[in-house]
Nucleic acid binder design. Structure first.
Length: 311
DNA sequence: AAGACGAAAGTGGTTGA
DNA sequence: TCAACAACTTTCGTCTT
C-alpha cells in the first residue's frame, strides 16, 4: 500500500481517565492528549508503522499515578503488585486480626483498582488502534462510533482475555461494517490491521456469539459500486449488475456463494452487455477472487437467468 | 498472443457425529 | 476430535478471437 499521510480523526474518542470529550492533537510532539486532565492517549500519531503504540499514561491530576511504560501487548505485566493471601508478615509471624481486616480491605481495593485501570489501558490501546485501522480503511465516523461501542461491550464482558486486542478490534470493525452495509472484506481489514485473516475470523465468530449480535449475511450488490469504481465502469453498468444480482437472488438463490464472487460475475456480465467489457482477470483482481470463480458464477447466472450474452 | 474455458487436484474452514 | 463436505483456488491443457 502506498504511504500517505493520515490525519488521525479523534472526534469519537473520549478520555478514558476523566471521560472528557475535548481531545487535543499536538502535532509538534505527535501526541494525542486529553484537554481536561492531560492524559496522553497516544504518541507518534503521524506514524503509520505497526509499532506506533509506544505509550505512556500519566495523570497530572490529584491521584498521581506513574510507573514504567506499559509494554505493547501485555497491559498488566510489570506493573502488578501482588498482595498475597496468607496472613503472615515477611518474617512469617502471624498478623493480628485487626491488621488482617485492614489487609483484607487493602487487597479488595487493590484488586478493584487494578481491574479498573487495566480496562482503561485496554481501551486506550484499542481505541487508538480502532481509529488507525478505521481511518486506513476510509470508514466514516459513525462506523467508528459503533465499533467503539461494541468493543466496550466486549471489554465489559471480559471477552478479550487470551486474545490480541488488535484481533478483537479488527473483528469488531468487520462486524460493524457488515451490519451497516458498508462492505469491507476480511482481506482488506487484514491488510489494514496487520492481523491474519483467520485470527480476525476467529475473534469475529467469538464476539458474535458471546455478545449475541446478529450480523446479516452480505448482499453481493453492496460490493458493486466499489468494484465498478475500481474498474472505471459507469453507473448504468452498476445498475445492470445490481439488477442481475437481485434477479438471481429471487431465483435459485446464490446462498452459500461468496458475495464478492457473485458481485464480480454480475459486473463482468454487465460490463459486456454495455460494451465496456473488462476481462475476467481485471474483474477478478479488484474483487479479490480468481477467474475460475467468476467463470463458475457467471455460468450459473447465465443458466439461471437464461441470458443470451455473447461475449 | 491474449483471453476464455473447464477439468482435476489441493486448501482452509464449517459442520455434525 | 475427527471425517465429510462445500466453496474457492491453483494449475494446466485446450479452444477462440
Amino acid at each position: 500500500m502506498a504511504t500517505k499521510t493520515e490525519s488521525v480523526s479523534i472526534s469519537t474518542a473520549k478520555c478514558p481517565e476523566c471521560g472528557g470529550k475535548r481531545i487535543i492533537k499536538d502535532y509538534e510532539r505527535g501526541e494525542l492528549l486529553c484537554g481536561s486532565c492531560g492524559l496522553i492517549i497516544a504518541e507518534n500519531i503521524e506514524d503509520m508503522g505497526p509499532e506506533w503504540r509506544a505509550f505512556d499514561a500519566e495523570q497530572k491530576g490529584k491521584r498521581a499515578r506513574g510507573g514504567a511504560p506499559i509494554k505493547y501487548m501485555r497491559p498488566n505485566k510489570g506493573l502488578v503488585t501482588e498482595i498475597d493471601q496468607y496472613n503472615r508478615d515477611i518474617r512469617g509471624a502471624k498478623i493480628s486480626p485487626r491488621k488482617q481486616a485492614q489487609l483484607y480491605r487493602i487487597r479488595k481495593w487493590h484488586k478493584r483498582v487494578s481491574i479498573a485501570t487495566s480496562m482503561e489501558r485496554n481501551l486506550v490501546i484499542a481505541l487508538a488502534e480502532l481509529d488507525r485501522v478505521a481511518s486506513s480503511l476510509g470508514l466514516p465516523e459513525n462506523i467508528k462510533e459503533s465499533a467503539a461501542l461494541l468493543y466496550r461491550r466486549a471489554v465489559k464482558e471480559e471477552l478479550i482475555r487470551g486474545r490480541l486486542i488488535e484481533s478483537v478490534v479488527a473483528a469488531v470493525i468487520y462486524a460493524i461494517c457488515r451490519m451497516q452495509g458498508i462492505p469491507r472484506t476480511l482481506d482488506e481489514i487484514s491488510k489494514a490491521s496487520g492481523i491474519e485473516k483467520k485470527e480476525i475470523g476467529r475473534a469475529y465468530r467469538f464476539i458474535k456469539i458471546e455478545l449475541d449480535v446478529d450480523v446479516p449475511l452480505t448482499d453481493p450488490s453492496q460490493y458493486v459500486p466499489k468494484f465498478a469504481t475500481a474498474l472505471r465502469l459507469g453507473g448504468s453498468v452498476q445498475e445492470e449488475a445490481i439488477k442481475l444480482i437481485k434477479k438471481s437472488l429471487r431465483k435459485g438463490l446464490i446462498s452459500g456463494r461468496g458475495p464478492t464472487g457473485v458481485a464480480a460475475a454480475a459486473l463482468y456480465i454487465a460490463s459486456a452487455m454495455f460494451g465496456e467489457k473488462r476481462t475476467q482477470k481485471e474483474v477478478a483482481d479488484v474483487a479479490g477472487v480468481t477467474e475460475v470463480t467468476i467463470r463458475n458464477r457467471y455460468r450459473e447466472l447465465k443458466k439461471e437467468l437464461g441470458l443470451k450474452v455473447n461475449l
